[in-house]
Simulated scan of single mutants.
Amino acid sequence: MKDSKKQRGLSLIELMIAMVVSLVLVAGVGTVYMSSKRNYHARDQLSLMDETARIALNALTKHLEHAGYATPTKLPMGEYMYPLGGATPPKAACDGTNSGVHPSLNLTTFAARAAQDNYKPDGVTVTGDAVSVRFLGDPALFTDCANGVLPENCRVGKAPSMEAAFIYNTFFVNESTGHPTLMCFGSRNTSATPIVNGVENIQFLYGVDANADGNVEQYLNATAVSAASAWQRVISIKAGILVRSLEPVLPVAEAKSYDVLDVTLDRNDRFQRSVYTTVIHLRNVVED
């Protein structure tokens, strides 16, 4: 009898207690695992957002600061900002086969993407502002924002006219590519080129030197600059971008507002977002 009692199994109550304890432990481990997975995913998306912002702001800085470049001899190139309503870029021939502006470029489309507030790339949805600049191509600087190469015969020194040597660059955001994407449209290409995915909105303010002292007196949006006829006095550009995670991160939709320069953008979804800004100095248009 003593041996029989020693070999007796668990009672029903003991078994139920063990099951409850096991369930609690499994639930705890599962909660920690899911929380760690979400945190890792959020950190991964945040890292990608930082990289997106770096690429976008570097591209904007690199190409917009070319505005007004007129070779080291500072040729009289005229307008360096290309605002909405400006004259359509000419297709000036270089040698009968090449032209500074790509021969197949739809200049009407290009002109519609000139510097403006509240640009609608699809004609319906506002994705922020658009900005457009121009400069002269020479042996030292001859590519547009999409790495389109200005033919040698079109560069300053060989081109038969200044119009043949102009390079135009436009930046805007497009959402019809699957992800919101920063786009560039260069005058040496026939269509817009994606720069980086994840840029959901872009805003620009233009630093105006009102008294020609080489300093910015005020920052204005494109509408205000046009109203003041001040495009020839713009010496810097503030760029602000709203970058969105490529995948939903938050467990539930959250309503948030984001201040991007002079506008406030409201969002209500599961995506993570951050605002990044930079100031681009137009060194070529400031007198030495």
Rank of each mutant, 00 (worst) to 15 (best):
E51I: 00
D262N: 15
H66M: 12
G28E: 02
D262F: 01
T88A: 15
E254G: 00
A210H: 06
V149T: 13
D262Q: 07
L75W: 01
D288E: 10
A130G: 14
L282A: 06
P180D: 12
P180W: 07
I17E: 03
E254V: 10
L150N: 12
P76G: 08
V275F: 06
G78V: 09
A227F: 00
A111K: 11
A255H: 06
V225W: 04
M49H: 04
T177D: 14
H102D: 14
A212P: 01
V260Q: 08
V275C: 10
Y119R: 01
A130R: 08
L60I: 06
V260E: 09
V21P: 01
A92M: 08
G198E: 13
E79I: 00
N197C: 00
K6H: 12
L265G: 08
G123D: 08
E163N: 14
I202M: 14
Q116W: 05
M1E: 13
A27V: 07
D269C: 09
N98Y: 11
T264R: 15
N106R: 02
G100C: 09
Q7I: 09
S236N: 02
E287H: 09
V133I: 14
S257W: 14
I235W: 02
G240V: 08
A56E: 01
L84D: 09
Y69S: 08
A212V: 02
L57F: 03
V149E: 10
H281M: 05
P151D: 13
P72Q: 12
E163P: 12
R188T: 02
G214A: 04
N153G: 07
H102N: 15
F271E: 04
D213H: 05
V252N: 13
N215F: 11
H66T: 01
F185K: 07
G157E: 12
R188W: 10
S226V: 01
E247Q: 15
G30Y: 06
C154A: 13
P89E: 05
V24D: 00
T109Q: 11
S257E: 15
D259F: 03
A56G: 03
D129T: 05
P160A: 14
T71F: 02
G186L: 06
N189D: 10
Y119D: 07
E200G: 02
V279G: 01
N221R: 10
P76L: 07
M1P: 15
V263L: 14
K74F: 03
T97F: 12
C94R: 04
T177Y: 15
L57N: 03
S187P: 12
A228V: 00
S132C: 13
E65Y: 13
